[in-house]
Design a protein around this nucleic acid. Structure first.
Lengths: 186, 186
DNA sequence: TAGAGCATGTAATAGGTTACATGATTAG
DNA sequence: CTAATCATGTAACCTATTACATGCTCTA
């Protein structure tokens, strides 16, 4: 008993309109990449299952020269299943974060190594924050009249809040590590 | 090619001293549960592999009445492997967060449903923040003289920063959703 | 006397990524 | 002419959880 979130992620994409597995992958990359992704190895088998379970229909579009496109569309049953999942409360997982694991065992390496690790993390997050801010502006400009815009912005703001927390924590942690280093050098 | 973080998590625990698979599970539960966990189904096979690869040694302690204990200890090779992993820079994954996925597709359900979802999330995180703060106090009291304390506190502070970000975001998002609801009711 | 704790481990199952296989068109 | 893009899918592999199997001791 384990919820298959990928299944619902894919149904959610299909709720935007009928499309192919290939399109779905692109949607993930274009719109959800900053917090979610799915590989073809997930998408195609899940689409097959959705059709078998009557949650989606499959239509084949033929093209000359180009390969066929297998277009999937949510059925009423699929839409209902998606909505049911939507209102299930989510758990509050603080996801496994590799940097925490490394810091937890920080004694194993030198202070300099730990400092380098956090500095690198800070750089990465600082870069990411810039990207998320750019995403926000792009969204506002490109989807002015899209009824989904408000919801999309909320997910982007989430990324910003969390990222800012990372940066604040990095600053605090670097100060602590540098303090420890100075002490050790006396 | 996929780094097996569990392997290093277990080696990290072993760096605290020789112990059994059972002990390792307890350590995870006691000290790392707020950001990491491993199941027996991971621990025992990984310990076996560590011994095969010469990264740890295995000694069997016999006990009367009680079952034997299989004690594992990091070898010099194991310690070196752990340290090598420690200095590898980590990626900046913003982990898959179910709540974001649901909000992204927020249009599928009612504003009331979305509000309820976020309210629930806020409650959960607010509860968790209390727990993390309690953990910090406990750590400070119980491990006053432990050389690992500074590192452990850094991981706890991470949890606090991220949690506070969740709460701020929840507040902002609820305000936005309630605003949308009022507008729709005019 | 039932259940929790001690202690090991395996098997079944689920979840997910990457590499492979195929083959046409189009842009640089 | 090479690489990317379009487009589908499978197979091998890795990661991880849960359930199962065993059996003793101590506590309520």
């Amino acid at each position: 008993m384990k919820e298959n979130k990928s299944k619902y992620a894919i149904m959610g994409i299909l709720s935007m309109g009928p499309m192919s597995g290939y399109d779905i992958k692109k949607k993930f990359e274009q719109s959800l990449s900053y917090f979610w992704s799915e590989s073809y190895g997930q998408i195609y088998p899940i689409l097959k299952k959705l059709a078998q379970q009557g949650l989606a229909t499959k239509t084949i579009e033929r093209h000359e020269g180009k390969p066929d496109r297998h277009i999937y569309a949510l059925t009423a049953k699929g839409q209902k299943a998606l909505q049911e999942w939507m209102i299930q409360p989510v758990g509050g997982q603080l996801a496994p974060h590799e940097i925490l694991l490394k810091l937890f065992f920080g004694q194993q390496v030198s202070l300099t190594d730990n400092i380098r690790q956090i500095e690198h993390f800070r750089e990465l997050q600082s870069q990411k924050l810039k990207e998320i801010k750019a995403t926000e502006e792009l969204l506002k400009a490109d989807y002015k009249d899209n009824p989904n815009l408000s919801y999309w912005l909320m997910t982007v703001r989430y990324g910003q809040h969390v990222n800012q927390a990372y940066l604040q924590w990095s600053k605090e942690t670097l100060a602590a590590l540098r303090g420890m280093k100075q002490e050790s050098e006396l």
